[in-house]
Amino acid sequence: MIRLSQVHKSYGRFEAVKRLDLVIPAGELFGFLGPNGAGKTTTLRMIAGILAPTGGTIEIGGIDIASDPIGAKSRLGYIPDRPFVYDKLTGAEFLRFTAALFGQDGPEVETRIDELLELFELRRWKNELTESYSHGMRQKLIISSAFVHRPEVVVVDEPMVGLDPRSARVLRTLFRRFVERGGTILMSTHTLEIVEGWCDRIGIIREGELAACGTMEELRQEAASEGAGLEDLFLRLTGEHSEPDLDAVLG
């Protein structure tokens, strides 16, 4: 479970996130949508403990991340938008290192590493340095690292960058099984079809505030647009439906 109460984040006078209240219960895959610069990544990084909120509280699995960061983070898996890994470690070494950061090692971890690498077709690259991995392979390695320690909550920022169609399907199944077994996922992405097809509920953030939140049906009702697709709803709810003058741009 993830709970955000009155969470805000300021950089000087600029308020990136404004008094955000959000509860994502166990067993839910929550999609986070918003235009560029709306505050999605800032919110995700605060939940992951990378940024400190200016105010408000964040709980992961019922533990306040400010008062018990180690306890809260031990339940979390985080997949960032940019797959930076240690170039001079092999894929297996990187996963072993990640598991150790969560205090886990031994034969059970080795088995999990093999299973995850097999799942994402990285088994044959297991003992190669990650500097030779493609962007997509690094992304799959980072996704594996978020699951290697068996987290309760996973926070995902743009998971589809660089993934091939097969890996995307594997990821969808993995996420679905994870939430069916009681896990919680908060996923931010710009791919509307993914949000529409994968998520139980959707939150739309605009200028640091939650503009809308609910199931697809609830969002349709809120926007008074029965039968509309997520793209129309998104543009309507974020107030970005005006068409730009393309002729002027293209010359």
Binding site: G49, P80, F84, L101
Partner: peptide, 13 residues
């Protein structure tokens, strides 16, 4: 530096 996302999001003391 580039791996701080991992160290900061893990329960590493």
């Amino acid at each position: 530096g580039r791996q701080l996302w991992l160290l900061r999001s893990s329960p590493l003391d």
